[in-house]
Design a protein around this nucleic acid. Structure first.
Length: 887
RNA sequence: GGGCGGUUAGCUCAGCGGUAGAGCGGCGGCUUUACACGCCGUUGGUCGGGGGUUCGAUCCCCUCACCGCCCA
């Protein structure tokens, strides 16, 4: 017998271990089943499970479990990425505790340290995924620094280089002066910063009395100014175009150029141009052939070609000093407080410096073209569709992708330089040496490029590198392209776009058919969860308090397309209650001998109540499947919740109590079998969302009844329930019973009839069909409506009785002792008023000729029927009211 | 400034051309032998404002307001 309450903690680990040990998560590359594949977006190896992970992995797991049950050969490919910068930082922080830096160790020893760290601490997130019940094929787990994946990285790098799609170039990059590496646009976050707008006077070279005022938020960059730009149409400056100013402090003469980049509305309309330290200025510099003067070193201290007097000053010290000096020269026009957005490194948190360096770039624009077409042509489909716009927007304006990073942890770039700087990009050092020999005509000393690749470079290959590419493995042939990629919108640029580019280029086909973009999880006030705000809800805490299934059900129930999830703990609690409800229903079944019957045939049940629940179940199963097929997780969860609690528990289990306590042995046996069978089906349908409690109940209900379960629930087939199981007559009949009982309950409550009191009820003007229904369900009705009796009334209603309309009949409740005549009169009057309003509203429609003429016939007909029903009910209430007046 | 999304019951959210729904909360009642993490009943809404299309609009179009996110 099951315990009185469900204790998730007790059973979750047990089932997870059993599933994993049995190998049920594993894909079957040799099977004849159709494959269904999801590539897990590899979480960062340094990461730990947060709510966003919980959501995305719950949805992916629900899809995988569902398709596995549908008979597909399901592959959910798990793994982690090596998170170059983040991981290196973690290990460096550990070294710093012993007062050491990575340079003390040297590169090879440091890399060894990182691997050591990974072995010890890199498994946190995969352990936590197991707590969440995720069922990927762990036997295929990959890491982006694995040997195989590294081979794919080299192959891609070399191939792209030979194709001219990957090259070395000197451009401005986002330089992180703390980490000393380039980072991508996507690793930069804009933060609002309060600063000033300094207005400097730049005197004209040929007229020291005149000057141009430029406004800047970054005075220190003036050391690298090579022009002043004004808008060509700006009347104020028209005569200055082509003349020169003398750059204060530096003394350099720089031109005044006309460029539309200068916005007449902003500041003074004249803007200083520092091509080596600003992305926009870089473009202006290009247009006008301006010099690029680098004035920073890698720490963002003054250096390079800046006047030596300033060398070594940190950028903020330099700012103070330059402003002070400008002021001393009388060239400071004014200072205005100014708030603006500044780029910060998302890992280091420091202000990013646009800096001129040599880096490796991928020609993203070329690779993006077929990736754009694939979505335009529908070969890859975004769900919800609107995300296509985000994808297109990004892809159509894509910039060269800087893939090199000046760190140690990652895939070292397979490029070697000869003594003269000539570069050899090859698969190995030996091949590079061979290429050098061919190039120089003799052996040459080569130096390998010390840089590593952006982590996303290797992640972009994930959909095929994990399947064995560049080898032509059976897995690759079978599982690529994958079925769906599930992720949050914040990763569209980082990852989806890049997988599309690489997948199409190297595999000739899109990496996935569907991209399901889910919402972000926010706190209950709609704020993004963040450590600094202190509003983070830890999914592991929720699991501890409410169980994994409750958390998973909550996330599915709230995963409506196109809307963020504002997570309130109360919802989790509510779905914990749902799990408990399911548990208790199972327990009730056990107590009543409702054991699973092998070979049970739902089509063969004869009792109306049983036929009804079987049909309702079939409809629910269809609804849930349809919802999951369309990624409408909330609809699937809602349909299952509603059926389990609102139909099976609230009505069916109550309807069958009189049968189970009765003496009709055949009906008892059929009802017991049906009760058990429907519950078994519910367990199947809920399993993708609530794997633990369903597995536990599946096994316990079998074992306790001595019925062998052929396999664990996770491996069971999804219920195949024909729509023919729906018996419309049974449906209508039980619906009538439900409405009759509900009606009586409402009246009792409104009349303040004591809950325990059993009252008589009479039925008037009932059709023969209704009377047959009454006879069939007399026991249930009497019990559930708490009646003393229910009889047919042929004459007028007794004095002081309450009347309610139910279809063609009237329910008469002789409640004289409870009834407050005045209140009852009011109640009836209210009903009549409501129905009159209804009739009037419908009449308005029906009296409108164009409605009758233009609306579809069935809509008009429906209105007529509704009018007739409302009218009939109104006259019955009017009659009852008249009767009350006599009393 | 540009783009996207949102505004529906006290709260969190579904619905999206033909009778406004759920969960939670509120209120009232219940020692009904599965379940108080429960049962029964019930109260809550000019579907953000204004125009338009339509026989008919919460739903489609325009516009305004406010909120959020992304990009400048």
């Amino acid at each position: 017998m099951l315990d009185k309450t469900y204790d998730p903690a007790e059973i979750e680990a047990k089932h997870y271990e059993a599933w994993e040990a049995k190998g049920v998560f594993a894909s079957q590359v040799d099977s004849n089943a159709k494959p269904y594949t999801i590539m897990m977006p590899p979480p960062n190896v340094t990461g730990s499970l947060h709510m966003g992970h919980a959501l995305t992995f719950t949805l992916q797991d629900a899809l995988i479990r569902y398709h596995r049950m549908r008979g597909y050969d399901a592959l959910w490919q798990p793994g982690t990425d090596h998170a170059g910068i983040a991981t290196q930082m973690v290990v460096e922080r550990n070294l710093a505790q012993d007062g050491r830096t990575r340079h003390d160790l040297g590169r090879p020893a440091f890399i060894d340290k990182v691997w050591e760290w990974k072995a010890e601490s890199g498994g946190t997130i995969t352990r936590q995924l197991r707590r969440l019940g995720a069922s990927p094929d762990w036997s295929r787990e990959r890491f982006t620094m694995d040997e195989g994946l590294s081979r794919a990285v080299v192959e891609v790098f070399v191939t792209l280089h030979k194709q001219g799609l990957l090259y070395r170039d000197k451009r401005l990059v986002n330089w992180d002066p703390k980490l000393h590496t380039a980072i991508s646009d996507l690793e930069v976050e804009s933060r609002e910063v309060k600063g000033n707008l300094w207005h400097f006077r730049y005197p004209l070279s040929d007229d020291a009395e005149r000057y141009v005022v430029v406004a800047t938020t970054r005075p220190e960059t003036m050391l690298g100014d090579t022009a002043v730009a004004v808008h060509p149409e700006d009347e104020r400056y028209r005569d200055l175009i082509g003349r020169k100013v003398r750059l204060p402090l530096v003394g350099r003469e720089i031109p005044i150029v006309a460029d539309e980049y200068a916005d007449p509305e902003t500041g003074t309309g004249a803007v200083k141009i520092t091509p080596a330290h600003d992305f926009n200025d870089f473009e202006v510099g290009r247009r006008h052939g301006l010099a690029m003067i680098n004035v920073f070193d890698r720490d963002a201290r003054i250096g390079g070609e800046a006047p030596v007097a300033y060398h070594g000053l940190d950028r903020y010290e330099a700012r103070k000093r330059i402003v002070a000096e400008i002021e001393a020269f009388g060239l400071l026009e004014k200072v205005e407080p100014h708030t603006h957005m500044l780029p910060h490194g998302d890992r280091s948190g420091v202000v990013i410096e646009p800096w001129l360096t040599d880096q490796w770039y991928v020609d993203a624009a070329t690779l993006a073209k077929p990736a754009i077409e694939a979505v335009e042509q529908g070969r890859t489909r975004f769900v919800p569709r609107q995300w296509e716009n985000t994808y297109f927007e990004w892809m159509r304006n894509i910039q060269p992708w800087c893939v090199s990073r000046q760190i140690w942890w990652g895939h070292q770039i397979p490029a070697w330089y000869g003594p003269d700087g000539h570069v050899f990009v090859e698969r190995s050092e030996a091949e590079a040496e061979a290429a050098a020999r061919a190039h120089y005509g003799h052996d040459a000393k080569l130096t390998r490029d010390p840089d590593v690749l952006d982590t996303w470079f290797s992640s972009a290959l994930w959909p095929f590198s994990t399947l064995g590419w560049p080898d032509r493995t059976p897995e690759l042939a079978r599982y690529y392209p994958t079925d769906v990629l599930v992720t949050g919108f914040d990763i569209i640029f980082f990852w989806v776009a890049r997988m599309m580019m690489m997948g199409i280029h190297f595999m000739g086909e899109v990496p996935f058919r569907d991209v399901y973009i889910h919402a972000l999880v926010r706190d209950e006030r709609g704020q993004k969860m963040s450590k600094s705000k202190g509003n983070v809800i830890d999914p592991l805490d929720l699991i501890k308090d409410y169980g994994t299934d409750a958390l998973r059900f909550t996330l599915c129930a709230m995963a409506a397309q196109g809307r963020d999830i504002k997570l309130a703990v109360g919802r989790v609690e509510g779905y914990r209650n749902f799990a408990t409800k399911l548990w208790n229903a199972a327990r009730y079944g056990q107590m009543n001998g409702c054991a699973p019957v092998p070979g049970f045939d739902p089509a063969a049940v004869s009792h109306r109540t049983n036929r009804w629940i079987v049909g309702a179940l079939a409809q629910t199963a269809a609804r849930a499947a349809e919802a999951l097929d369309g990624y409408r997780f909330n609809e699937a969860a809602g349909a299952l919740y509603q059926f389990t609690w609102g139909t099976y528990c609230d009505w069916y289990l109550e309807f069958t109590k009189p049968i189970l306590n009765g003496s009709d042995e055949a009906a008892k046996a059929e009802t017991r079998a049906t009760t058990a069978w429907v519950l078994d089906q519910i367990l199947h349908l809920l399993h993708p969302v609530m794997p633990f409690i369903t597995e536990e109940l599946w096994e316990r209900l079998g074992a306790d009844a001595g019925v062998a379960r052929p396999q664990p629930l996770i491996a069971e087939p999804w219920p195949a329930l024909e729509v023919s199981l729906v018996d419309p007559e049974a449906e209508a009949e039980m619906d009538w019973v439900v409405r009759l009982i509900s009606t009586v309950r409402t009246v009792r409550s409104e009349m303040n009839v004591p809950a325990g009191a059993q009252i008589p009820v009479m039925l008037r003007d009932a059709s023969p069909a209704t009377l047959r229904r009454l006879e069939a369900h007399r026991g249930v009705i009497t019990r559930m409506a708490r009646l003393a009796s229910i009889e047919v009334l042929s004459g007028p209603a007794p004095k002081g009785s309450v009347q309610v309309v139910l279809d063609e009949a009237a329910l008469v409740l002789p409640l004289a002792e409870f009834v407050d005549i005045q209140a009852e009169r009011q109640r009836l009057a209210k009903e009549i008023e409501k129905l009159s309003g209804e009739v009037a509203k419908i009449d308005q429609k029906l009296n409108n000729p164009s409605f009758v003429q233009r609306a579809p016939e069935e809509v008009v007909e429906e209105q007529r029927e509704r009018r007739a029903d409302a009218e009939a009910a109104r006259s019955r209430y009017a009659e009852a009211l008249a009767r009350l007046q006599d009393a």
